[in-house]
Each structure stands twice: as structure tokens, then as C-alpha cells.
Nucleic acid binder design. Sequence first.
DNA 1: ACGTTATTCCATAGAATTTATGAATTGTGT
DNA 2: ACACAATTCATAAATTCTATGGAATAACGT
Lengths: 219, 219
Amino acid sequence: MADPHAKAELYEQFARVGKALASPKRLELLDLLAQGGRSVEDLAAEAGLGVSACSAHLQVLHRARLVTTRKQGTRVFYSLAGDDVTRLYAGVRQVAAAHLAEVGPACHAYLGDDVEQITRDELLRRARAGDVTILDVRPAAEYSAGHISGAVSIPLSQLSQRLAELPPDTEIVAYCRGPYCVLAHDAVRLLRAHGRAARRLADGMPEWRLSGFPVAVGA
Amino acid sequence: MADPHAKAELYEQFARVGKALASPKRLELLDLLAQGGRSVEDLAAEAGLGVSACSAHLQVLHRARLVTTRKQGTRVFYSLAGDDVTRLYAGVRQVAAAHLAEVGPACHAYLGDDVEQITRDELLRRARAGDVTILDVRPAAEYSAGHISGAVSIPLSQLSQRLAELPPDTEIVAYCRGPYCVLAHDAVRLLRAHGRAARRLADGMPEWRLSGFPVAVGA
DNA sequence: ACGTTATTCCATAGAATTTATGAATTGTGT
DNA sequence: ACACAATTCATAAATTCTATGGAATAACGT
């Protein structure tokens, strides 16, 4: 009959994935990794962790096989193990947002006042019509790892100095890492403060790519 | 600027969902709940837990809002909070199966030798053609809560005594709770040992329902 | 070969959590 | 008032989490 130990063992394996998702810092790391491969110290800096702590978290993710490693010279690049992992992470966020009342306030506290959004489909239509400027405000390395076809890269930190590079009289749609990333929110507020028409893509690069929408790689 | 505390708080919320998924017993409970609402003691018995321990686990799930409660007389019925939760749970299993080498052996140890499978789409075609008997081998209560349209209910525990109820000369497709449930595996082996042509639906009731395939409710 | 650099490993440590058990309690319905 | 289901509580051992700073490892450049 059903060996209760065998059953427990199987669910133990499933739970390895759950345990990997059980820490806020690890979810932050997944968020960063969804933008492309990254080295440990890069991730540590971006996530506000010490290198050791970051490495430890990454190894939890690695033991659950949510990430893969690749050695490039003296450094180790971590990447998500597959699109299914990206989708799983998105699923966690979606379920949390749909059912946890605290997510709303937490979003507002972190992202600030709502800015006008645009959906992926509408952006694709507008991009094909050519009457919109798509703006990637993530760090340059993330843009290189993959961006929306036709997007220009101006990291948020440089945006106020480089406003002139944006063609005048066209609406700007800014995007970043995902629906819970501040960068595009801040960018839109900054652009509007300078009198530009700007909206934010409702989600970010990973969702765009997973939808099969056109992506470009490189500088 | 970006308040690091606000960011941490947001990811803390996301991690609540992850934490809820971080225990094998809780995943087992989700598996059971995906079949329909259930009382605490029912769940406790099915999952091999004491009532207290089961109640505690359920409250972890409830605090993460993965389940909802409904009072019916003297007992409390727990249900999944939505289809997104069912999908999230399926996602965890899928990622584990795709990336964790240990899942294969654990499956074999629990489910036994592979039995022939059939996909949802093929089953639907065959069912429409009418040349197949669909057999639900889950406990009767789960059948009542929702089953594949046209399926007959013979819980695995009664199958060997009730073989005569199955129309002769038609192939039988057995299904149960999902891809990692033993019931249909055992049923197919039992049927084949009695000389019947039998296969197993590759996944179970929740996946069938989520695909939008026809479902019936009641005895 | 040697120094540099990135990452992992180790030792530590406190805090916090997890899990389960059995008994007591709450609350609902008969 | 009684019976029953579920939760809470008191325990308890075990485990786990998290982060830190320093040592070990491994690969590269000179």
C-alpha cells in the first residue's frame, strides 16, 4: 500500500521549492535575477546584503534548483533556472496581491502615489504605430541583458540630466523590473514634473518577455 | 527616495505566501483542499496529522490568505482562496519536478511503476466519442464536490468489490487528485490485473477544472 | 610564482521559529 | 445542560534563520 514515508519524501521535495520562496531577501534576489544573470557582489550590493549573506541566500536558491550558476573568469554568475521559475515568482506576488490586504498599503508606501499605467498590449500597438517613446530606466547592465525592442536606455539615476535625449512631443512610456519596482514610478513622476506626457508600463521586462513580445539584447 | 524599510515591508508580505508553502504537510493540505472544501478533522485524518497540528497548519495557510473558512453548524470548512492558489500550488510542483533530480525517484517510490497515461485533450475527445469509461477513484465526498462530467465514482477502497459495475469491453480511464496522487495509479494496476484495458489521466480533477473542461457537481 | 579578486566556507551567536502532543477552553447546536 | 468541533495553551526539543567577520579556495593577470 501507500508507504507514508515515500509520500512524505515526495512532499518534502516540493517543500524545498516553497522554503526557497520563504524569505523576503530571497524574493528580492529572484526579482533581480529575473532581469538577467548577475554576479554575487552585484546582487549583494543591489539587495542591500553583505556578500556572505547574499552568497548564503543564493545557495539556498541553488539547492532548490531555482537558480543555476555559471563561472565566468573569476566570478560566478547566477541566473534563474528557467521561465517556469519566473512565472512561479510572479505567481507568488500575484496571490499575495490578490489576497493579502496589507499589500496595498505596503505598495503605496514603497511606490508612492499611483501613476498612470498602460498595458502591454496597448504599448505594443502604440509602438507599432510609432507614436510613443519606450524608456528603459533600469541600470544599463539590465538593459543590455534584454530590453523591449525599440526602447531607449536612460537609467533613472541619469534621467534628470539626460531629459534632452528624449524626443519632444511624443508620449513616453517608462518601464523597469516589474509591477513592484520603483524605478518607473519615479521616472514617470520626474518626467511629468518636467511637463512631459508619461505613463508607466503596468509590469516590467520579465512579463513582457514571457508574453512572447519582442525583445532585443545588447547595448 | 526609496525607503528601504518600505521595500522590505512589501517583500515581507510576498514572503508570507512563500512561508505558507514551505512545509510538506501544508502542501499536502493544499492538495486535499484543491479537491474541495473540508473540515479540520477530515483534513487531519487524511493528512495523518493530529487535529491540533492540523488546525495550526491551517491557520498558517489562513494567515497567508491561501485558504478561506466558512462555518457550517459546529464545524469549520476550509477551502482554497481561489483558482490562483491552485495554480500556484501546481506551479510549485511543476518547478520542483522540472528542476529537482530527487523528484523522479521519490515519485517512483511513492507511485510505483509507471502506468500508461492519457492527456486531458485526448480524454475529452474520447469521452465525446463515447467509447471510454471515466472512473473517479477518489473518496465519495470529493466526487460530490466536483468531478469530470460523465465520470462514475468508485473509490479505490471499493474498486475490487465493484468491478462488475464497470461496463465491459470499454477502455477505462481512471483519475484522482492530481499527477502525484497514488489512487489512480493503484486503480489502473488493479484493473489491468483483472484483464481490463485501463489508463490513467495524466493529472487530476483540479487541472481538468482549471482548463475549463466540463465539470459536474453532486452525487 | 605571486598577488589580486571573487566567492564560498567556517565559526559564531542570538533570535526566532517550527513542529507536534495532550489538555483545557471556547463556541455552536441539539 | 450536554455533546461536539475547533482553537488555544503549555510544553518541549529541535531546528532553523539570519547576518557577521574572517579564513580558505580558486581563477586570473602580471
